[in-house]
């Protein structure tokens, strides 16, 4: 596993991860490229820099925990975990096939190193808060990171969880909202607007940091600020571009849940060379 705090080195890993995302979704002929590409820097920065974890000892009690609330973006998580050494890189292209450990949504039965099975939106933050609370009960330094989609936070349970996290002062959790502004049916602002989003999290009692979700140095600073913030949970509102890194996928709702053709895959990989 490459562990580095150098943003340039993390950016190189992010490019590799993006290539995996495109290739595995193309091989599967289905999947969700847009929201995987938007979350790439977030997930890479966490696994390859910020989080304390050990692929050779995935159940280490004091490890930091990661939950992908927006489980459909699992190609990014699988790619990052594979690059870290948790699972085989050469099997990424079995994604979504019968018997593959790379299930259509994260499934702990197939990859025990995952912290939670997700895919039904809105539940990951609550589970993460439970894990963060367990760490507090146990006097463990473990931190928990939960990545949510912006569309996902239309789920009411997110706001039940937000109230809970603030009420219990769970300051060892970081909720990252991948604010890519697109959901399955179209643009979030047209489907069910969320603005003023930062104000919403602040009013629920979360220390809220807005960053460019593709700026690795800014993400690192936000995660360090979260660690230094005591007595309240932190929300990193990461402004991102859906489909980031592949020009024809960027900001186009079509690429929420469509697989590229072989030709489109080749074009995308050229851009990610």
């Amino acid at each position: 596993m490459t562990k580095t705090s150098n943003p340039a080195e993390l950016a190189v890993i992010a490019k590799t991860v993006r290539r995996h995302i495109i290739e595995m979704i193309t091989a599967a002929k289905s999947g969700h490229p847009g929201g995987s590409l938007s979350a790439t820097e977030i997930v890479v920065t966490l696994f390859n820099d910020i989080m304390k974890h050990d692929p050779s000892n995935p159940k280490w009690a004091d490890r930091d925990r990661f939950i992908l609330g927006k489980g459909h973006a699992c190609p990014v998580l699988y790619s990052v975990m594979a690059e870290c050494g948790y699972t085989p890189v050469d099997k990424l292209n079995t994604f979504r096939a019968l018997g593959s450990i790379y299930q259509g949504h994260p499934d702990v039965r197939f990859i025990p190193a995952l912290e939670a099975s997700t895919g039904s939106l809105g539940q990951g933050l609550s589970v993460g808060l439970g894990m963060a609370l367990a760490a507090k009960f146990n006097g463990s330094p473990s931190r928990t990171f939960v990545v949510l989609g912006d569309g996902e936070i239309q789920e009411g349970q997110i706001w039940e969880a937000a109230m809970f996290g603030a009420a219990r002062k769970i300051d060892n959790i970081v909720c990252i909202v991948d604010n890519n502004r697109i959901q399955l049916d179209g643009f979030v602002k047209d489907i069910m607007p969320l603005e003023p989003l930062a104000d919403k999290w602040r009013s629920f009692g979360w220390h809220t940091i807005e960053v460019d979700g593709h700026d690795i140095a800014a993400l690192q600073a936000a995660f360090h600020e979260a660690e230094a913030t005591k007595g309240m949970p932190t929300c990193v509102l990461a402004h991102t571009v859906k489909g980031k890194g592949v020009s024809f996928m960027e900001n186009n709702p079509k690429w929420h849940g469509s697989a590229p053709s072989k030709e489109e895959c080749a074009l995308a990989l050229q851009e990610l060379a």
Binding site: A132, A134, F164, A167
Partner: peptide
């Protein structure tokens, strides 16, 4: 609080973390 769905998932997080 009066939020059963959240409570169940909080409980699951606690249980998954060994409580």
């Amino acid at each position: 609080g009066i939020a059963e769905a959240n409570m169940v998932a909080i409980g699951a997080g606690l249980a998954a973390a060994g409580k």
